[in-house]
């Protein structure tokens, strides 16, 4: 008798309990990268944030993400209208402001996978970076272009050459770094730097390092980098 009850109960639960009660996960990819005149703007990984707002759903809260090292971003979303923005004082670049304190937004109408490159105006760009390895040192020769020269121009605080054993190369992740103070840079062309490769900090048997040059701009938190280079030892 009792067993019958349980069987009945199980049937009821099975029949009514497991309705499909969830939305399917977002499937549309929105990706792109930070660009300046079509060229990638390289930043530190996971440090420069962006925000996507989807208005019209009562409470407003952003969908947040960060840019990868090469300035790219990628996020999975539902179809809809979005507004893309980067918060104040983030990134080694300027972003349009509608009025003081009001950040401009990029309207994105998302119906299918879409690539939206974000054009920004960096303070500086590292140009023509030549990174080579010779005799236990990584040598870098590069030019710096001062992009913003008007009243909003900022000085260079320092230029740094970083190497690391993994592809994440930045002030936080490196196995070697050389700094050059901005005050000691006399010409923005053919700046040469080098950093010694400390083999004891690499994985055993590792015969390559990753390197890139970064510019720290005075009063700006995030650095701007040259493209990442993998060098064979």
């Amino acid at each position: 008798m009792k067993i019958k009850h349980y069987i009945l109960l199980t049937f009821i639960v099975a029949a009514f309990g497991c309705k499909k009660d969830n939305y399917s996960a977002p499937t549309i990819t929105l990706n792109g990268r930070l660009t300046y005149q079509g060229e990638a703007v390289n930043v530190e990984d996971n440090k420069v944030p962006f925000q996507l707002y989807q208005p019209g759903f009562g409470k407003t809260a952003p969908i947040s993400g960060t840019f990868a090292q090469d300035g790219s971003y990628s996020t999975l979303l539902f179809a809809g209208n979005y507004k893309f923005t980067i918060q104040a004082n983030q990134g080694p670049f300027r972003w349009k402001e509608v009025s003081a304190g009001k950040r401009d937004t990029v309207a994105i109408n998302l119906t299918g996978n879409q690539t939206v490159d974000v054009e920004v105006q960096p303070f500086y760009m590292v140009r023509n970076a030549q990174l080579t390895y010779a005799g236990g040192n990584v040598n870098a020769v590069f030019n710096i272009e001062k992009v913003i020269t008007d009243a909003n121009a900022r000085d260079i605080e320092r230029v740094s050459l970083y190497i690391n054993k993994t592809q994440y190369v930045s002030v936080a992740d490196n196995t070697g770094a050389t700094d050059l103070a901005g005050s000691s840079i006399t010409s923005l062309n053919n700046i040469a730097m080098n950093v010694a490769v400390d083999a004891s900090k690499l994985s055993p048997g590792q015969n390559y390092v990753f390197a890139r040059v970064g510019i720290k701009i005075a009063g700006v938190e995030d650095m701007i980098f040259s493209p990442l280079v993998k060098l064979s030892l």
Partner: peptide, 12 residues
């Protein structure tokens, strides 16, 4: 923030 639209966000 969304419960009270009069609040301004923190800087940076």
């Amino acid at each position: 923030l969304s419960a009270n639209p009069k609040l301004v966000k923190q800087p940076n």
